[in-house]
């Protein structure tokens, strides 16, 4: 049996849609179940539903063989897993935003973010000295009440930023969801996983990464 770690929330629906398109028969109750572990016996698949940020952790430790994780999470967590396929779902991008786009002043401007590694890597590359403040959500609040000068977060439509009077000051990198695989499972369950990769890549939209095989 193959165990797949799925991200709860935003990406989940799109990921399930993709799996169905790839020919996996997932029952309708799959979509609104509150169970954390779901077994689909006829497909020989077991799904675990995890926080998006935790998916690579489950896969790295091998309790899940494969998983679906955002590139943002992969960049932040730097887990030892194979990033095999760009699923091209849940597209968005990582960006810096603030109340104004005037250059940062002060000795050590403060940056609020859910992605402390991504943020500190980015500002190091820019050669700017900053202090990172880790928040767990509603990042847009930080510059509004003076906790931070900038935020680093994912932006999909830009509406949240706009409604809170924030403007994007820099683009960091585009984000999509990735199909990830545990290094041991990639070798010991290669047949099932290769089959899954093939079926998924056939339904991934846009330029097909895998067509060059």
């Amino acid at each position: 049996m193959l165990t797949m770690a799925m991200p709860k929330g935003r990406i989940f629906e799109e990921a399930v849609g993709l799996l169905r398109k790839a020919g996996y028969r997932l029952p309708p109750e799959f979509d609104d179940s509150r169970k954390l572990i779901l077994e689909i016996e006829e497909e020989n698949l077991r799904f675990i539903l995890a926080k998006p940020m935790d998916v690579p952790t489950y896969v790295e430790h091998g309790v899940a063989d494969v998983g679906i994780a955002g590139k943002d999470v992969m960049l932040e967590e730097e887990r030892n897993v194979y990033e095999v396929l760009d699923l091209k779902i849940s597209g968005c991008y990582l960006a810096v935003a603030g109340i104004t786009d005037k250059p940062l002043t002060g000795v050590a401007p403060k940056i609020a973010t859910k992605y402390p590694n991504v943020a500190s890597n980015y500002f190091r590359e820019q050669g700017e000295q900053v202090e990172i403040i880790k928040l767990n959500g509603s990042i847009e609040l930080a510059p509004l009440i003076g906790l931070a000068d900038r935020i680093v977060d994912i932006v999909s439509t830009g509406r949240t930023l706009k409604e809170n009077g924030l403007m994007e000051t820099a683009f960091i990198e585009p984000i999509t969801s990735r199909f990830i695989v545990n290094p041991v499972s990639y070798r010991t369950k290669d047949r099932v996983i290769d089959d899954m990769v093939e079926r998924l890549s056939a339904v991934v939209e846009g330029v097909d990464d895998y067509e060059d095989r």
Binding site: N80, E83, D86, D190, R213
Partner: peptide
């Protein structure tokens, strides 16, 4: 272990399509 990045990088390199295919095919040599 970043195959997505590898394939993207290979596509962006100025190579003949035969050479690109050779580099892509490496990932399936298992």
């Amino acid at each position: 272990k970043n195959y997505v990045g590898y394939r993207r990088h290979v596509r962006e390199m100025a190579l003949s399509s035969i050479d690109q295919k050779r580099l892509m095919a490496l990932l399936t040599l298992r």
